[in-house]
Computed example of a mutant assay.
Amino acid sequence: MLIYLVAGARPNFMKIAPIVRALQASQSGNGLSFKIIHTGQHYDREMNDVFFEELGIPQPDVFMAAGGGSHAQQTARIMVAFEELCEKECPAAVLVVGDVNSTLACSIVAKKLQIPVAHVEAGLRSGDMSMPEEINRLVTDSISDWFFATEPAACEHLRREGKAESSVHYVGHVMVDNVLYQADKLTQADTSGFETSAFKAQQGRYGVVTLHRPSNVDEPATFARIAGALKEIARDLPLIFPVHPRTRANIEKFSIDLGPNITLAGPQAYMAFLNLWKDAAVVLTDSGGLQEETTALGVPCITIRENTERPVTVDEGTNVLAGTDPEAIVREARKVLRGEGKQGRRPQLWDGRAAERIVAVLARELAARDATPIAKEAA
Score class of each variant (00 low, 15 high):
44 D>L: 09
244 H>D: 08
317 G>N: 13
303 T>Y: 10
315 D>G: 01
205 R>Y: 00
48 N>M: 12
71 H>F: 12
312 V>F: 01
32 L>V: 03
124 L>H: 03
61 D>T: 09
361 V>G: 09
211 L>K: 06
65 A>S: 14
294 T>G: 14
106 C>Y: 02
206 Y>N: 02
336 V>K: 01
277 W>A: 05
40 G>A: 07
177 D>H: 12
55 L>Q: 06
164 A>W: 00
206 Y>P: 04
341 G>T: 08
315 D>C: 04
290 L>W: 02
106 C>W: 05
121 E>S: 11
96 V>H: 07
338 R>W: 02
173 H>E: 15
58 P>T: 06
316 E>P: 00
366 L>Q: 01
21 R>S: 11
176 V>L: 12
12 N>C: 00
223 F>D: 01
176 V>R: 05
28 S>C: 01
24 Q>D: 15
358 I>L: 13
47 M>Y: 04
242 P>I: 05
217 V>M: 02
174 V>Q: 03
263 T>I: 08
371 A>H: 10
49 D>Y: 02
350 W>C: 08
209 V>C: 09
172 G>E: 10
59 Q>D: 02
145 D>E: 11
202 Q>A: 15
78 I>D: 11
277 W>N: 10
342 K>S: 08
319 N>E: 06
337 L>F: 01
164 A>L: 13
8 G>H: 06
42 H>Y: 13
25 A>P: 00
346 R>C: 14
148 F>N: 12
305 R>D: 07
108 I>C: 06
229 A>H: 10
242 P>W: 01
184 D>K: 15
329 I>H: 05
69 G>D: 01
127 G>W: 08
167 S>A: 15
210 T>W: 08
65 A>Y: 00
261 N>V: 07
311 P>N: 09
208 V>Y: 11
310 R>L: 03
242 P>Q: 05
54 E>N: 14
325 D>V: 11
260 P>Y: 02
278 K>Q: 15
122 A>C: 11
121 E>V: 12
357 R>S: 08
46 E>L: 15
326 P>Q: 09
66 A>M: 12
33 S>P: 00
254 F>W: 08
367 A>R: 15
370 D>H: 13
251 I>N: 04
97 V>H: 13
8 G>S: 00
266 G>F: 02
342 K>W: 01
327 E>M: 07
96 V>F: 01
154 A>I: 10
188 Q>R: 15
268 Q>K: 13
25 A>I: 00
272 A>M: 11
258 L>A: 10
314 V>R: 02
35 K>H: 13
17 A>S: 14
375 A>D: 12
231 K>D: 00
314 V>G: 04
244 H>F: 04
301 C>A: 10
131 M>L: 15
190 D>E: 14
337 L>D: 09
76 A>V: 10
267 P>E: 05
268 Q>N: 04
229 A>Q: 12
26 S>N: 12
323 G>K: 04
289 G>C: 10
227 A>P: 06
366 L>F: 09
228 G>I: 05
310 R>Q: 06
369 R>P: 01
330 V>F: 06
100 V>I: 15
176 V>S: 10
283 V>D: 04
354 A>G: 06
91 P>F: 10
96 V>W: 06
